[in-house]
Computed example of a mutant assay.
Amino acid sequence: MPSVRKAAAAVSVLAAAGSTTAAAGHAEVYAPPAPAPALSATALDARYRAAGGDIARALATAKRVRDEGRTRALSDFLAPGRRFLSFDPRGSGRAVEVIGDLEHADRIAVVVPGADNSLSNYDSPKFVGGGSRSLYRQALATAPGKRVAVVAWLGYDSPSTRSLAVLTGGRADDGARGLRRFLTGAHRVNGHARFALLCHSYGSVVCGKAAPHLAHLPVDEIAMFGSPGAGVDHASGLGTSARVWAGRAKGDWMRYVPNVRFAGLGFGADPVSSGFGALRFDAGTGPHSGYLKPGSLALRNLALIALGRDAEVTHA
């Protein structure tokens, strides 16, 4: 039983690191989103308008309650040219933004973020909105004239790294269901594009749970980076025909997190380990939050994966 005791001890360390005192409860002041049509080519503009209306109403609430962080963020969301497919201001918030032409793209990259993402930090280069725009610019620079779209998919309740939720799969279960629904709808919008899932940190748990249910969709690339595990012991356990990639930057603190699964905590094998069976890409030397930083090696390789240009990816 030494291995079990070792796993239990490791998870205890994880739990201690992830525990936090409960935040004081407060009444939800933001209204839920208005009903919107199912995502399809004919409903695309209606979805953009509906989400825009939800953002405007949430901004009015933020101003009324003097929520300065939300006021700044949501004002930026309403800038000309920005298009959101869905938006929910409750809690830490959810938002799904399209960068580029979703309907006519040949390649669609969906960025699935990890922990600590919220509406207030959404546009930071370290988080899903800012990072997705960096990815879009890199993809266009790599393949000028290529028809590509990037989706910043904050479509689930991102857990806090200071909570035990980040050590369990509950949020990822909800996220996986939402991701499947979104990809199905996006495929209805654009029936010819190929999809790449770029999954950061806890987002790789979301992608790992979604992957076995995506066989009916043209997902041909899944990249996990800064990952705590994907909930399976081998890439084959993801049940996908997509190429599975994994990368970890040399400065990422995730390398110190034990890859165990015990008593409902942890996510199993390390995707960058040789035994996992993923293709390993060179993620450079940056920190956990730096994979989509402009000019980084990680961003260059993730853009190539998003474009389906596998032969040009630098391997670790």
Rank of each mutant, 00 (worst) to 15 (best):
M1V: 11
V4H: 13
V4Q: 14
A8M: 13
A10W: 00
V11A: 12
V11N: 02
S12G: 12
L14E: 08
L14V: 11
G18R: 09
G18P: 04
T21Y: 14
A23G: 11
A24T: 14
H26W: 13
V29S: 07
Y30D: 05
A38M: 08
L39K: 00
A43W: 00
D45H: 12
Y48T: 03
Y48C: 03
R49S: 14
A56W: 03
L59D: 00
T61A: 04
R64S: 00
V65F: 00
D67I: 04
T71F: 03
R72G: 15
F77T: 02
F77V: 03
L78E: 05
P80L: 04
P80Q: 05
R83A: 06
L85K: 01
F87C: 02
R94L: 09
V96W: 01
E97I: 10
D106E: 15
R107L: 13
G114I: 07
A115G: 13
A115H: 09
N117T: 06
R133F: 13
R137M: 09
Q138T: 08
L140P: 03
L140C: 08
L140V: 12
A141Q: 05
A141P: 00
W153K: 04
Y156P: 08
T161M: 11
V166K: 06
A176L: 11
G178L: 02
L179Q: 00
R180E: 12
R181M: 02
R181Q: 07
L183G: 01
V189C: 13
L197M: 04
L198I: 02
G203E: 03
S204W: 02
V206K: 05
L214K: 05
L217M: 10
D220Q: 12
G229F: 03
G231P: 08
G231D: 07
H234V: 14
W245H: 02
W245S: 02
R248Q: 14
A249N: 06
K250T: 13
W253R: 14
R255N: 06
V257Q: 06
F262D: 06
G266V: 04
G266K: 03
S274G: 15
R280K: 15
R280N: 09
A283M: 07
G286A: 12
G286L: 09
P287M: 07
H288P: 11
K293I: 05
G295Y: 07
N301A: 05
L302M: 08
A303T: 02
I305G: 10
I305Y: 12
A316P: 15
